[in-house]
Design a protein around this nucleic acid. Structure first.
Lengths: 347, 347
DNA sequence: TTGTAGGCGTTATCAC
DNA sequence: GTGATAACGCCTACAA
């Protein structure tokens, strides 16, 4: 009779410390001590401790982390702020952060800024409001002032993927300069003479470093042309509308090779080249920073640099947890980890 | 002198209700009322309200959501439990969930189960412990009993991507049957006669439905061969070691076309086919459920079904928020949303 | 229209 | 060894 209404069965009240205290006729404090694993140092008798633990399990007790957090001042949550969680690069980052955080018993909350400083600020404020113990932040253009003010507050954070000019805070990034230098040099070695560079936002530290690697490789090879004419900037939100036009222009400028500063640009351009019937690597050479799955499947495979995401995340969490525990006597540092050059057939 | 020690400047104490109450010589309750936007209904004078809001802003007040949550019983957090956040499919899902949740002022916490029921259970328990207001769950094989027990508790949840046999709870999935039927039918129409199907875990509801679409399409076309010999199951963690062997066996069995039940299988197989020099679509035909970026870039492009992830997420959050608000008079339902068939050149 | 006080579930500091 | 009791920061009857 009742079973057909099972789906509207009443919520069960959460069991709390006092419930198990009552059941055992002991004080609530005692239960708290035992369940937070301090039986030994408080010298609670083994049998009592065992009984407490047992009935806690029997009753299905689950500590209320809100209450615990309020009392202890630690939420056990880490905030991850990326540009866009649906970008596979950040997706992988989220996964590794999750893994590393779990080892330290942290849960992770995430947010996507869409490279928008207001969104980032909002998210950071929300996270702070939720008392996250720390944050891992991918800073965006024009967020300096806000991030500076964040430093004044008590909540620790570390940058990842890019650092923020003017904000002296720990950061762990891949070696954008080196990777780009290698990629560009390879293009040159293969005989390409006019190499265009495409980037999304020339203000970002990682992109700057990539561009620096590109220009330096050109200079070192004695290649000499007005580099400004060969660097193209395309915002992600203009990708569909403007990318093709710029690609076309680069081609008209006589470019015979392309260095893409991130996976999205690379992938979108691939489609364009296919559409207009350019063959790679004969007509044009291609290299790209970052190694999405598409580059392995593409024909020819795309030569690229794979970022050491896992290592970056481990390092970031490591630094962050030390900061959270307050043992950070050292000055902030910028850690730059080398990626892996993956040579395929696109140049 | 001091500036060089800026990086070790002292944390600032969080400003709270009482701070702004003191500053204004009003009671803390008054401040609370104003800041939670209840000035009107409590008929607080406009000027007082304005003053409160102003100094709150001036002092940089940020409500402590732990305290608020403890008091109100709502954390404002939604838990998202996927198989693996680094899988682009789930990454996109996370993004849309984030967007939808933000509209309702929810933050989202995520966790990856790796298709492992113990991990899922742990994560769900942690989330419950953190008092999430609700969860969106991608159920995994052998999690029925645990999920049933979760139903007994007061925390609302909804399934996404797959439902869970034996657990009568709301679920929103893509129309796995239909998509697979279309894909398989297309293969048949193109003249392929022996079609193998590859899947990761035949126990999962979505995979089951995909297999059902595949087998039904075969039957409807009068194709008659021992289907059991043409269905291959490869776990994700065996991908590298076993996939190739199975692909090889399928080929030896005379298969001339392949239906892949998810993007990972499809992408990995593509690499194999390339390695052994099979040309698509001449030697073999290929279709796949799900539309990762790689399939657009691959040559030839891979025919596939794109899942309506955005719609699924909107629906899921919609249902969940109604449940959270307690207005759910209806029985749980399983919503199945059709995807989009994308025909490319792989068959 | 505003102030007071109790309590949300825990932890921690005391006494006993 | 164990048990009261006071916070943590906020909300919300209920008084005034």
């Amino acid at each position: 009779m009742l079973s057909q209404f099972k789906w509207m069965s009443m919520p069960q009240k959460q069991v709390k410390l006092i419930d198990i205290a009552n059941k055992l006729n002991v004080s609530i404090g005692l239960v708290s001590i035992v369940l937070s694993g301090k039986s030994k140092e408080r010298r609670i008798s083994d049998e009592l401790a065992a009984k407490v633990i047992e009935t806690a399990k029997a009753l299905g007790y689950r500590p209320n982390q809100l209450a615990r957090g309020l009392r202890t001042g630690k939420s056990g949550i880490i905030g991850l702020l990326v540009a866009d969680i649906s970008n596979p690069f950040f997706g992988k980052m989220a996964r590794y952060i999750e893994n590393e955080a779990a080892k330290l018993e942290y849960q992770v909350m995430f947010g996507s800024s869409d490279e928008n400083p207001e969104k980032l600020e909002n998210l950071v404020n929300m996270f702070a409001s939720r008392q996250v113990d720390g944050m891992i932040i991918v800073p965006v253009f024009q967020s300096e002032s806000f991030l500076l003010s964040l430093q004044e507050q008590s909540i620790p954070f570390v940058f990842i993927d890019r650092y923020c000019e003017g904000v002296d805070e720990d950061a762990v990034v891949s070696d954008n300069y080196l990777g780009s230098y290698q990629l560009t040099s390879l293009l040159i070695k293969k005989g390409y003479g006019k190499i265009a560079a495409f980037a999304n936002d020339l203000h970002l530290s990682n992109i700057k470093d990539r561009m620096h690697g590109y220009t330096t490789a050109l200079k070192d090879s004695g290649l000499n042309y007005p580099v400004e004419d060969f660097i193209f900037e395309v915002d992600f939100d203009q990708l569909d509308t403007r990318l093709e036009a710029m690609l076309k222009q680069a081609l008209e400028n006589g470019c015979d090779a392309f260095f893409f500063a991130n996976n999205k640009l690379g992938i979108s351009s691939l489609k364009y080249f296919d559409k207009v019937g350019l063959t790679i690597p004969e007509d044009i050479g291609i290299v790209c920073f970052d190694n999405p799955e598409a580059f392995q499947v593409a024909k020819p495979g795309i030569t690229c640099v794979e970022q050491p995401i896992e290592l970056m995340c481990a390092k970031a969490i490591n630094i962050l947890s030390r900061k959270i525990e307050g043992k950070t006597e050292s000055k902030p540092e910028r850690i730059s980890l080398p990626g892996k050059l993956i040579v395929r057939e696109s140049c």
